[in-house]
């Protein structure tokens, strides 16, 4: 018995080893290392312990706060916009209409395109004066807009690409959620004389709450991790108008070679994400309905 349990334990360890190894190397170790590095400062070839200096520098830095505000704005726009569009599309495609598979594929398609390709295509469409979008704008009497060059529009361009890219994915999740809702509920409601708006508010939304909860968390995490379109479309400009957290970290780590400051920013980002996640699971989840509870 003893020998068997030994062998059993070794087997468990061996099975877990590959996963643990990669998790440790590429997730836990870098996370721990970032945390430790944030208390040091490397100048030239010397590294010294500086306590909370990096954090003080971060909280006193105008660009940092600009980036935090930018990211908050991006999240506040990206999450509801992409969720509403996704839910709308999902409800349209949930009905039995001819060619719904074609539409589903079409709307899901942006998800498959890599961010890099999507950003380059959008950048091309958004070129001032001779880009397609501006040509259409000018031909119907609207002004030419310097989409990614004008600080008033640059962030919207970034948000637009993000929403375009992700809505299809969220739509698929909503579709799966919608198909879980029993038809009998809807038929009953109709017999009682409920209109479409009432059905949506009283049946669809509450029964979709677990799906929405999941999508909201994914969307929020994605909005904090957005970097591709920023890197390719605006490089954070003009004047840091579109600089988001992950791009800011990238700049400090691999462009300015301030690894320690980049680690400090990373610790802040991880803490912020943790706070959001905890808030969602402790506060928001109470209002979420899971199908298994009901039966």
């Amino acid at each position: 018995m003893n020998a068997r349990s030994w062998r059993y334990k070794i087997r468990v360890v061996l099975y877990l080893f590959p996963t643990f190894f990669f998790l440790f190397m590429f997730t836990y170790y870098p996370a721990i290392r970032s945390f430790v590095d944030s208390f040091f400062l490397e100048r030239g070839m010397q590294t010294s312990f500086v306590g909370l200096d990096n954090y003080i520098r971060m909280f006193n830095n105008d660009v940092f706060w600009r980036v935090v505000r930018n990211n908050a704005f991006y999240t506040a726009m990206f999450v509801p916009l992409s969720m509403c569009i996704a839910l709308g599309l999902a409800m349209l495609l949930n009905r039995k209409i001819a060619g719904s598979t074609v539409y589903r594929t079409a709307f899901f398609y942006p998800m498959i395109v890599p961010y890099a390709a999507a950003s380059m295509i959008w950048l091309y469409l958004l070129i001032p004066h001779y880009g397609v979008i501006n040509r259409v704008f000018v031909s119907i009497g609207l002004p030419n807009i310097e989409w990614v060059q004008d600080p008033n529009y640059a962030m919207w361009s970034i948000i637009m690409v993000g929403v375009w890219k992700q809505s299809g994915y969220f739509m698929m999740i909503f579709l799966a959620g919608l198909q879980q809702i029993p038809n009998s509920l809807m038929e009953n409601a109709e017999l009682e004389g409920a209109g479409p708006f009432l059905k949506f508010r009283k049946i669809t939304l509450p029964l979709l709450s677990s799906t929405s909860f999941f999508v909201a968390i994914i969307a929020i995490l994605q909005s904090f991790q957005s970097v591709d379109q920023v890197y390719l479309m605006t490089r954070g400009g003009p004047g840091n108008a579109t600089n988001l957290m992950v791009y800011h970290i990238y700049q400090h780590a691999f462009s300015f070679w301030n690894f320690n400051y980049a680690s400090t920013l990373t610790v802040f980002l991880v803490a912020a994400l943790l706070a959001v996640t905890v808030f969602f699971f402790l506060v928001v989840e109470r209002h979420v309905y899971y199908a298994s509870e009901g039966t």
Partner: peptide, 11 residues
């Protein structure tokens, strides 16, 4: 680069 953008866009 950021300063140039802030000045030219009138911020």
């Amino acid at each position: 680069r950021a300063t140039i953008a802030l000045v030219l866009t009138g911020q």
